[in-house]
């Protein structure tokens, strides 16, 4: 495994001079290619801010983020768009599907934007939808399918261009437990079988237990790191809950 992303001393401040909020404080870590990494923390701990930095949607106040040795904090708007197109895939809590497009078209759009050819688009779309079990609903609109199906569509869209990194922001947040489990299994399969590198932000310890490694954020700083190693998922979940109960994570998680 090689270092895909290096986050070096990233800081992010919000607000005006009189009222500054420090969302991230000198955060540094690395992500290797083929990893399934989780970022945990309570609300306001800076998870989403960190994700926005990595996804280039927001800019850093100071520090650097290297993506395959390229510093993406120095790129301009145009180059960032190109970078996102070529390297990143997104899965969000509220699915972020385009409501005017069908499931298939949502996935296709991600490819047409890259200027791929018609045959390639069709073949790849079909393959991805089959892998994620949504081929039978391809002509439906997002509002016509269940939350789990929507999220799998979002996964398919994130996967279809074979990005180097998939960013997932609370992907199970809007799902019932059954759909959530199914989705996390999908993530694991994507990671293990398709070799996708996934970074998942979550405050749900059950979801986090599917990751191979977890970074804990608190008040904008990384205060702990857990690696799953060879243990079972169940053991890993207990470890996560231990960390959370020690550090005042979600009370519900510690019970």
């Amino acid at each position: 495994m090689s270092g895909l992303i290096r986050v070096c001393d990233v800081e992010k401040y919000y607000g005006t001079q009189s009222n500054i909020t420090k969302a991230l404080n000198r955060v540094s870590f690395e992500i290797n290619s083929g990893e399934f990494i989780g970022i945990m923390g309570a609300s306001g701990s800076g998870k989403t801010t960190l994700l926005n930095m990595l996804s280039t949607i927001d800019t850093v106040t100071s520090g650097h983020i290297y993506f395959e040795h390229q510093d993406i904090t120095t790129l301009n708007e145009e180059k960032l768009a190109l970078f996102r197109k070529a390297n990143l895939g997104f899965v969000f809590q509220d699915f972020n599907l385009l409501d005017t497009l069908t499931i298939e078209e949502n996935i296709m759009l991600a490819m047409t934007l890259q200027g791929k050819r018609k045959q390639e688009i069709h073949a790849k779309c079909k393959q991805t939808m089959e892998q994620l079990g949504i081929a039978q609903i391809k002509d439906k609109f997002p509002y016509e399918v269940s939350g789990g199906q929507k999220q799998r569509c979002a996964c398919a869209r994130a996967l279809v261009n074979e990005p180097k990194l998939i960013l997932a922001d609370e992907p199970t947040g809007a799902l019932d437990s059954k759909s959530a489990t199914a989705l996390l299994d999908t993530f694991t399969a994507m990671n293990e079988k398709l070799g996708a590198t996934i970074l998942m932000v979550t405050h749900d310890s059950f979801s986090a237990s599917y990751c191979r490694r977890i970074l804990f954020l608190k008040d904008g700083e990384i205060f702990h790191e857990l690696v799953r190693g060879n243990g079972t998922r169940r053991e890993f979940l207990n470890e996560i809950l231990d960390v959370l109960s020690l550090t005042g994570g979600d009370v519900a998680d510690a019970r």
Binding site: I57, E78, A81, A86, L88, N96, T100, L109, R157
Partner: peptide
């Protein structure tokens, strides 16, 4: 508005 921010996430530049 969200439709256009999705497009942005999909890698559409401002000009596009």
């Amino acid at each position: 508005k969200f439709r256009y921010s999705i497009l942005k996430q999909l890698g559409l530049s401002r000009r596009e």
